[in-house]
């Protein structure tokens, strides 16, 4: 009996790795092609960013800066975050700026804005401005310069317009107004914002990072140097849900979305298999009729695949180790 089990695991141990690869591929392709509903639990690190941005809603004297410090290789994780933050800002009428530091990021930034704005009536120069690509060697001068005067530090936007002359800049001068910076990167770029802009001018800094960096960033979250953080794809999925539940919400009482509430987000479900945003609260369905486009749920669909893959890997580790111990026992005999 024992021998049989050991033999089985022995065989399993020697399983051709290509079968494993195939399982990995399927565990990701199937959930992507056939989406299913799974709950998205939000975490405080992401909620903090949402709440901060939401507190700027409709206020012409406040703005958010998105800094794109990454290239295409980390796009799967970071792009959904960027789109949902932009969507949140467009929904809630929050003024927004974007900037990037490498030539490779410029097309990604453009792409994120265009993806998010398609369904909103927003104008460049009024609701948002793309500062465009600024060479990395100018990072420090610009980050410090914006503490004094944004329009001088940046000078022109991606279309070559003088920032100073734009409508959006009327009541926005420096970090006192542009009070939140979110840096998206696969590395330590947000920490430079913490070191310079946060330490010197007290601006709020949040980070959108790939999961690899999460453990490294945690100490900064604890000291409050970072106000919030998107933890990889999971963070993006959480934000997508919050935008659906709060920012997209439209009733007579709240024509432009309702304010964030921890109690609400806990209880509401938004199924991603539907083509419109539907709230399910305590079993009661409410169809808002607002289209839920693929681009707004891409992270949540991705998280389905992620869940399946995680479980699979955990199972692999456990199976592998059982086999390992059994065979070791056999060797010791």
């Amino acid at each position: 009996m024992n021998g049989k089990i050991i033999a089985f695991f022995d065989k399993m141990q020697k399983l051709d790795r290509r079968y494993i690869y195939l399982m990995v591929a399927l565990s990701i392709i199937i959930p992507l092609v056939i989406p299913f509903n799974s709950p998205t639990f939000t975490s405080e690190t992401t909620e903090n960013i949402y709440r901060k941005i939401d507190s700027f809603a409709g206020d012409p004297t406040k703005a958010v800066l998105l800094s794109f410090s990454h290239d295409a290789s980390t796009m799967p994780e970071l792009f959904p975050m960027e789109v949902s933050v932009l969507r949140h800002c467009f929904e809630r009428n929050v003024r927004i700026f974007t900037i990037c530091w490498s030539p490779a990021a410029a097309p990604l930034m453009e792409h994120a804005i265009n993806t998010a704005k398609e369904n909103y009536d927003v104008t460049s120069g009024v609701d948002y401005v793309n500062f465009g690509y600024k060479p990395n060697s100018l990072f420090l001068p610009i980050v410090l310069g914006m503490g004094e005067d944004i329009s001088e530090a940046i000078d022109t936007d991606s279309q070559g317009r003088k920032i100073k002359n734009l409508d959006i800049m009327k009541e926005i001068k420096n970090y006192d107004d542009m009070n939140l910076v979110i840096d998206f990167s696969g590395g330590g770029a947000a920490l430079s914002w913490v070191t310079y802009a946060r330490a010197k001018f007290g601006v709020n800094v949040a980070a959108g990072i790939t999961a690899v960096m999460v453990a490294d960033y945690y100490p900064y979250l604890q000291t409050g140097q970072l106000i919030g953080m998107f933890r990889g794809l999971k963070g993006a999925a959480e934000y997508e849900k919050m935008v659906d539940v709060f920012a997209s919400y439209e009733t007579d009482e709240y024509p432009n979305g309702r304010p964030f509430s921890k109690e609400v987000i806990k209880n509401v479900k938004v199924p991603i298999t539907k083509s419109t945003i539907i709230y399910i609260e305590d079993g009661v369905e409410f169809d808002t009729g607002i289209p839920l486009n693929y681009k707004y749920k891409v992270a949540r669909i991705g998280m389905n695949a992620q869940s399946v893959a995680h479980i699979m890997i955990i199972v692999f580790i456990i199976l592998g180790n059982i086999g390992f111990f059994l065979t070791r026992k056999k060797d010791n005999l």
Binding site: E110, H111, N114, K117, E118, T123, S158, Q159, G160, R161, K162, N165
Partner: peptide, 22 residues
Amino acid sequence: GKVDVNVRTGVAGNEVFFYDTS
């Protein structure tokens, strides 16, 4: 100078602006 446009989405409004100022 030039005005960059996103190939996929094109220009959203009915006008493209270019400022020759200051």
